[in-house]
Amino acid sequence: MTRELTVDLTSVAGAAVLRPGGDIDMSCAPAVRKAVANIMRDRPERLIIDLSAVAYMDSSGIATLVEALQQSMRNKIKLVLVGVTPQVHSAFEITKLVSMFTIVATLKDASNA
């Protein structure tokens, strides 16, 4: 059951909101990485990555988010993850990266985190 990746970009209260949908694995992590890089070039104050439609993420996806975190710190952009599904949360836990990210439950929380 292949879940094709989609990447939507919107704006909420001045924050860029990236919403990937589908599975993020080795075959489609580059598309997310490219989308993040494009947003970073615009230097928003805040980048919210909404993962509520991501049912699966492997280490390629996690590496993409770590890269995004490092870029955001260099560019002084606040990066917030929202809607982390149980499978994705497990992957963060195994790699002991949960504490590195600001993770919140809702988009409203993400605007204030």
Partner: peptide
């Protein structure tokens, strides 16, 4: 980023 697969 990277090098997490073996750990997982």
């Amino acid at each position: 980023p990277g090098g997490l697969g073996v750990h997982i």
